[in-house]
Design a protein around this nucleic acid. Structure first.
Lengths: 152, 152
DNA sequence: TATTGTTATACTCTATAACTATA
DNA sequence: TATAGTTATAGAGTATAACAATA
């Protein structure tokens, strides 16, 4: 595969949307399946990771960041709280809200799980060429940009 | 973003695996959530799409192609059969197996759903640069390659 | 009234374990 | 015995609708 030299496909060739969504869904299925015997699920890890990167926030903000509905995040927060990985603190000025913070156990898990998850995926990535890895790095930026632009 | 000129990141920088898996999972979540009021789910569509691309096959082969366990595929097949989108036919030589084929209704749905799904994703993709779309096209190839290389 | 969050409920997706039928 | 597939069961993840508490 020579990415640099390939001519751009026409604007509306259409197959990209279909191919991309199938590939992403199958890959995500695979990533989730790889998590047996782990302390937290990928959904939980994703929430912990967001708290790690962006700091304490309200449940609503965390739901928005993770792009799930508030009731879904309520359950994720409850499960992580049961595991002692996050703490709920009262909001300083608004009694309706709460502030969710990463507990020490959660911080530890984020670090360990990120390392563990890399174990198998990094093995796969290591077999790719530097160009292919760069492509995937760019993809992370593009997917996050697309997600950020989809506000509804 | 200028993808072509960027220097390759060092071999083992490690963050790619973590960033990629989080981005993929969030994107997949978004894709699934976009399917309300659709005739078939993304899982069902994925199976129909495989039958469309690769032709009739046994439930076991379909499970392998979709990278799910046989019992999971049994349920997908049953639901698609209830919807009249696939047909089960006896295997010519092995009484244990069956051959799953795409029914006319299934063929129609694959075509229509692929078009419908593109409606929103294509809107997003259209806002990207040609370089960014090429990056995503390459990513589809890379992800499928990684999935194909992970046989266990 | 509007907003934030939770509870109640239900559906989809996937898995493991145990079973049936055929090879 | 081994293989292909199904059934039974369970758990994770997500959603909508209805509710409670606070602004």
């Amino acid at each position: 595969m020579n990415y640099a030299k390939r001519v751009h496909s026409p604007y509306g060739d259409g197959s990209l949307a279909g191919d991309l969504s199938l590939a992403v869904v199958r890959f995500a299925r695979r990533l989730r399946g790889r998590r047996e015997n782990k302390l937290v699920s990928l959904t939980q890890l994703s929430a912990l990771s967001t708290l790690h990167h962006e700091g304490p926030m309200t449940p609503g903000a965390l739901a928005a960041a993770e792009r799930v509905r508030p009731p879904s995040m309520t359950r994720v927060i409850a499960s992580l709280s049961d595991l002692g990985m996050i703490k709920r603190e009262p909001h300083p000025t608004d009694g309706r809200q709460a502030i969710v913070t990463l507990a020490p156990a959660g911080m530890e898990v984020v670090t360990e799980e990120l390392a563990a998850r890399k174990a198998w995926l990094s093995d796969r990535l290591r077999e790719l060429t530097p160009d292919e890895r760069d492509t995937l790095r760019d993809t992370v930026l593009i997917l996050n940009k697309v997600l950020a632009d989809t506000e509804d």
